[in-house]
Structure formats: C-alpha cells, structure tokens
Design a binder for these strands. Structure first.
Lengths: 318, 318
DNA sequence: TGCGTGGCCTAGACCGCTCTAGTGCTAGAC
DNA sequence: GTCTAGCACTAGAGCGGTCTAGGCCACGCA
C-alpha cells in the first residue's frame, strides 16, 4: 500500500479511500492511484481490511460436503450476496469434520452471522449458538418455541406434497400411493400434505415406507395409478426397478420425486419432481441474516418458501 | 486478549504464548491463562493472528460446486491437514461464479498456495498463476512443458482402464467393448489403457462413443461379454437401459464404470468401478503444496496415484 | 475584508494479534 | 564471588489496512 502511495505521489490514506471506492478523492488522483495499483499488481489484504474496519462483513456458511442440494444453495447464496457488501466464508462438515468444528472455525474468523445448511445439531445447541451470534437455518425446519432466536428459511414441504398430488389428480390419476421417508427431515410434513390433498379429493391415502423389494412386489402386484416417492433417489430407484420388471413409466404408472436433484434431470431418468427454489431460499436467508445483524426488530422467525413443480417425463395423463 | 491478560494477572504477550501453545510460560501461569480464557470464552481472532505473524499458513482450495468427487477430495483434504499447522480456505466455482473470481478471493486472503480441483482454466493461465503463488492441480492432467511450474497430483487413468480390463479378463470375458468419453478429461488416457490391455491379451479393441440409443441398439444386437464405460454415470445409464431391454446384468453382460462415485454405491446400481484414491491424492497434494511453499528443491512436478478397483455386483465370471 | 463552507488530502491512532529485544532472577560453573 | 546460561516474563514495534480529526485552499457571501 505504501508503495502504491509513493508511486502515485499521495498518502496511504488516500490510497485507502480510492481502493474502497468511497468519495473523497479528486478524479485525477483516483485515476493515478488506480494506475499505480494496477502497475504494481496491488490488491488490498482482505484480512487487514476487515481487521481495520471494526467489522468483518462476512456471513459464515456451514454446508454438508456430500449433499448435492447444498451445492445449489451455495451457488444461489453467492449470487444473493453479489452486489451487497457481504462476503461468504465456507466451512464444510462431513464424515470426519463435525459441524461444531466448522462453526468454531467461522467464529474464529469473526463472521457476523451464521448460515447453517441442513444443520445436524439439536435445536438446543442451535439456540445456545444463536445467543452468541445471529443464526439462520436453511433447509431444515425447527419446532417453534424450541429456538426462537434462530431464524429459519425453508421450503414448504407440506405444500410440496400437496402440489405433487394435485398435479397427479389433474392428470386424472385416482389411486396415488406415497412411499414416505420415515423420520427423515421433512418427511412428516410431506406425509401430512399428501394425506390432506388426497383426502380433500375424496380419496384414500395409501402409505408405504420407502421402496424396498417387498414394497415394489406389492406395487407391481396391484399397480396404482401413480407413486409419490419421498425424494428423487427413491423415485429414480423405483423407476428403474419398475421398468426392469416390465412396468412402463409413465405408461402404466406415473412417478413423482422430491428435490429436483441432478438425478431427476438426467435424460435416462427424466423425473417429474417438486423442487426447492434455491435462489429464493438463498436470497431470503441473506436478507434475514442481514436483518438480524443490523438488529432490525421486524425480522420474522421463520420464512416458508413455496415449492416449484418441475414436470418431466415420468408422469402422464391416464 | 487484554481482558484475559488482566484477569490472569499477566501481560498480553504471555497470553499470546499460552494461546499458541509454544514453550515459554510456567505451568502455573499457563493454567491460569487458560482458565481465564475459558471463563471469558475468549478465542483468538484468526485474522489478527495471521496478520501479526507474517504468514497465513493457509492453503486455498478452489472446488466445483456440482462435482461429487470434489466433496470426497475436500473431505480427504481436511483429514490431510489435520495435525499440520495448515488450514484450508474454500472458494467454490460454479455456473455463476468463475474460477478466476475464486482464485482472486483466495489471493486477497493471502493464501500461501493454491490447490485447484479439476481446474477449468487453460494451462497457460495456470502457468501464469504459478509464477505468483505455488499451484497444485488435482484431478486433471497437464501436458508437461506447458506448465512446468504447476504441480500435478492425479490418478493414473491409463492404469485404471488397464485394471478394469484385467479384472474382466480374469473373469473369463473375451469380447470387451469400451464406451469411451471422447474429449473429456482423462478419456484419452483411459482409451490408451484399454487398447493396450486388450491388445496385450491378444484381443481386438472395440470402441464406441458414449452410450446413446444407437450404440445401445448395436450392443443389444450383438451382445459383448463386457462393457467398460467411461464413467459411472454412463455405466449406470447403460446398466438401466440394458436391463429395461431385458438384458441381464451381470448375467448376460458385465458392466464396469469409472470414478467410484456415489451412484456406483447405490444398492439398485451396485456397479463395479475403478475409483480414485481420494485420501492419497489429498495427502500428496498437501505435501506437494507444502514443499513448494517451503521452496524444497526436490518437489516432483507430477505425482501419479494408482487407482483402486472396487468390485460390486455388475460384473460376474462368464 | 472577514468569515464560514465544502472539497481534497494527510497524520497518526487503532484493530487484535505476533514477535523481537530486552529485563530480572535463579542456579550452576569456575 | 563473579560470570554465564537459561528460564519466565514484558514492553513495544510491527502486520496492512481503516478511520477520525484536522489542515489547507479556493469560493461565495455579507
């Protein structure tokens, strides 16, 4: 920085002003400083910059290494912070790296808020964490009351199931089976949405747990009009197994998945699915984090985002 | 830090000594400082710490957001740096975030070396980058001479193809077709390995490009003993298509993939595949980066890691 | 002429650490 | 009894920025 100042014939303070892009420098000097910086290939040290200004302007993100949807969310988070003064610091968790380690690393970097993607920690731990730093949880629901200080941004799983059922009903299907996800996150909401939508149509809910061999046997024996799987992996597995047994999809039976993961988009799979709106989730999460950092009063505790139906080749009218 | 020093009744310098875990403090004072730190929930500011010591002790990692294998590599990288003084800084690249942006962000953090996972930049750019900071490329090969300053750690793709062919030969298969990957990274090496191994066994190489519909038609019409696909996705697609057409895998034909990705491990897929040794790649990459940072003379330019055959349910003896 | 006023610029404190160059003290060597 | 060595500890100068307070210099206006 001193070198740039010397070369441009100004003080270090003026270099700082120019590099930050704030008013307070004449056009000539601004130009001169920028040229000197370019010639010396000078780029301000991010760490020093953040240290000097009292704050870090950094949102810490904890994501799972082996969850494809987190990749989508991260992509959307980066576009959500583009153009804002915020930057993102990533710390992954995985098989050998615990969530707590990732959080600790972010706190040691003095991030101003934490964005936790599908956190595994119990609600009580999250509440304790939220007492020290603003926390926004993405892609996981948290019972109200347990952790009121924690912000939540999530997809409306119940609406997602309802949307899927309504799509199938619109195609003329009547007997719609739900292969549910047991105790997986979101599974309960999806079951509820399924039940409600099916019942509302005057039909009877039929639930089976995950598509294992026996379940598939039963399905093949008494083929329903459509199957609503718990997620895309389950749906894809089901789809392949059914086809291997000579059942045409979507000819004989329609299949719907959840998540709009990359599996669903594969040409050989081409799965109709209900996806999460990653862009919107990300944008809302950043806004929520920002609001909490600034101490805005009116920050909602929980924001629920409607899902998006993606129609592909695994569903067809009766 | 001053608060901790005051509470423990020592100087800030001694707190620094204790927090860094270096010798120079009496057991009593060490204990006292640690207790004070715990009571105040004091954790040193990472940025200030790195700023103060001239160096950052940080390896910058650029990874793709939508590449599952990078998740495995990251996991291995974190275990490779555990216990060393190094930390990792992640910057992802994706559809909207260019590799150059990620690299710039890492340089602004003053990382001491760059670990690029499957970089997309041309070799010339990498060479230019390597002139400014030590660079190690993972999971991509780089022609020698083009970028001698760039370190490379990669899997031996040729050996991988050879290993796969030898596995199939050992099972008694004779007519082995390779559905190759065209100009994808590593595809050329895999073709070469396939050709060499097949020819060495006195057989004739048969190459087809990717498993599209016509190719599958041809395969079904004149069923070979085994098919070696270019990667797991292609292999899984092939597997499903063949089964849907009534061809038993591995009963009628064996299928082998590449990469040992998560697809291959799915119970419904259960693909025999040749995988990359992520742990070893990661360890070697960290060592190489470390060597380059320390200016060790004897750093190899390219390190090639042998692949690992993972036998699952898609291959069977004739 | 005197007096704000605002734009441009600089000196220097400060952010929260590390690290060098000491100081003071005890103990062993001669 | 003096020297030296080594240990425990501290003062204070950085690290590379930001930011506050203030200086200087037109310029407009009474």
């Amino acid at each position: 920085m001193a070198d740039v100042a010397a070369r441009a014939g100004v003080s270090r303070a003026l270099v700082s002003i120019v590099m930050r892009g704030v008013p307070g420098a004449s056009p000539e000097n601004r130009e001169r400083v920028l040229r000197a910086a370019a010639e010396l290939d000078y780029h301000p040290d991010q760490r020093a910059r953040l240290l000097g200004s009292g704050r870090s302007r950094t949102l810490g993100v904890v994501h799972g290494l082996h969850e494809p949807f987190h990749g989508d969310l991260l992509e959307s988070l980066y576009s959500a912070v583009a153009g804002t003064p915020w930057r993102l610091a990533l710390e992954p968790r995985g098989r050998i790296r615990a969530e707590a380690v990732a959080v600790r690393a972010l706190l040691d970097q003095r991030v101003e808020a934490l964005l936790l993607l599908g956190p595994t920690a119990p609600a009580a731990d999250l509440a304790r964490l939220a007492a020290r730093v603003p926390v926004v949880v993405l892609a996981r629901s948290l019972r109200a009351g347990r952790a009121d200080e924690v912000g939540v941004v999530r997809t409306d799983d119940e609406a997602a199931a309802r949307t899927a059922v309504e799509h199938l009903l619109a195609l003329g299907h009547r007997r719609i089976v739900h292969a549910h996800g047991g105790r997986a996150p979101g599974a309960a909401e999806r079951r509820a949405g399924y039940r409600r939508a099916v019942t509302a149509a005057g039909l009877v809910p039929e639930l089976v747990h995950g598509p294992d061999h026996e379940v598939v046997d039963d399905l093949v024996a008494a083929l329903p009009d459509a199957v609503l799987a718990f997620n895309d992996e389950a749906a894809a597995g089901l789809l392949h197994t059914l086809r291997a047994r000579g059942v045409a999809v979507p000819g004989d039976v329609s299949v719907v998945g959840f998540d709009d993961s990359s599996v669903a988009a594969l040409p050989t799979v081409s799965l109709t699915t209900v996806g999460q709106d990653a862009d919107r989730l990300a944008r809302l999460a950043v806004e929520q984090a920002e609001g909490r950092v600034e101490g805005v009063e009116a920050v909602q505790r929980e924001v629920v985002v409607p899902p998006r139906l993606v129609v592909r080749g695994s569903t067809r009218a009766r």
